[in-house]
Design a protein around this nucleic acid. Structure first.
Lengths: 201, 201
DNA sequence: ACAATAATTGAACAGTGTTTAAATGTTGAC
DNA sequence: GTCAACATTTAAACACTGTTCAATTATTGT
């Protein structure tokens, strides 16, 4: 049987591992962090971690879930407030999405990194789906308000996702490139996308 | 001294390594391919490869350069032909760029993947820059023809790059996601982007 | 033929994520 | 308190990685 005290201790160690890993991943990058480094920081044998996480990628998956939870919260707050032009709400949502990605490069990159570099976890993926659901809602408002050129909500939503995703990945993936000022590029991309779906009057 | 015959043999082995690696990387993914597997396929000791390549990533870098050379060729053919609407040429260029990325996921990912997952090689990066130069040219034509809402060539070019890049990365990074039909999403993104920069008449 | 040079080898090295048998802690029933 | 049952931790080992290196083999110029 699992006593309350024991359960709490387990949970505490789990959190310590997560805290150590969160910090290390962010500074050194996932692939440069070893299980032994994490274990050392928590002052525990490497094997111990495997009683709290299935494997290394499960640690990152847990961290990503947290992070995407935060994104979801911010997103939902934006969507719930249904005042103002839906297209402008869409723009704000996109802006927030991009900024979030740039603020959490390691987490963002690893949920979207190409297959073999990083194992995929369904849990993280479904967390991302939840965020996308909010985007869908926002788009639906625009379509229903008759503000859009096209009618297919799914098509528009996925297109916008691809667009914002592209800005984030470009900044993260090519830090050495001579980009124009960051916020200007972001606004430009958002502007083009919004104008691209807006119905001409 | 290095005899002609010897130089040819060296070159041949180098090409054999590249051929083996090209195939293995494409099917199994960079991180699942070991130097020993490549060596075994070329029927050579693992150490031998290091007389022809600095390290594992140098092999991929060489392959990427080849690949991006092909992209450049296709791109240039498109840009050189200056007939027809420049905006439509831009659309065709974007379509080709996305298709190319999806046809060479491993290579595309290397040049754009986030730092720690894959090592960066300046040679590959500058190859990518050359492609971007073509995009810039295409955009300039549109601006000069007075077809665009905005005037800043660099701003438009970078925005369009981010957009097309986003489509590629989304497909590559989230293969399990219930996307709408691939070509439909691609056309939709391109359409939104083109309409987003087009001057209203 | 014989040094000099270049290419190849297979073993070794330092590191990785993960597994496992043994040791240690903790718990609940007697 | 005792003791068996269970949970947790540990250090050592495993199988694997990319890479290095002395020794071996092959090729070259004289």
């Amino acid at each position: 049987m699992l006593t309350k005290r024991r359960e709490r201790l387990n949970h505490e160690l789990r959190e310590e591992v997560l805290a150590a890993a969160r910090e290390l991943f962010a500074t050194d990058g996932y692939h440069n962090v070893t299980m032994r480094k994490i274990a050392e920081r928590v002052r525990v044998a490497p094997g111990t971690i495997y009683h709290h996480f299935d494997d290394k990628s499960a640690i990152l998956a847990a961290i990503c879930m947290e992070t995407f939870g935060k994104l979801d919260k911010r997103m939902e707050a934006l969507v719930t407030d249904r005042s103002g032009n839906p297209l402008e709400r869409l723009r704000r949502g996109g802006r927030m999405y991009v900024q979030f990605g740039l603020e959490h490069p390691q987490h963002y990159a690893l949920t979207f990194a190409i297959g073999d570099a990083m194992p995929k976890h369904d849990s993280v993926m479904s967390a991302g789906l939840k965020t996308f659901e909010n985007l869908r809602l926002c788009v639906r408002d625009c379509v229903d308000a008759g503000l859009t050129r096209m009618q297919d909500v799914e098509e528009i939503a996925q297109s916008l996702w691809a667009t914002t995703h592209g800005v984030v990945m470009l900044f993260l993936g090519k830090p050495g490139f001579p980009f124009i000022e960051q916020s200007r590029l972001i606004e430009s991309v958002l502007d083009i996308a919004i104008e691209g779906i807006r119905k001409k009057t």
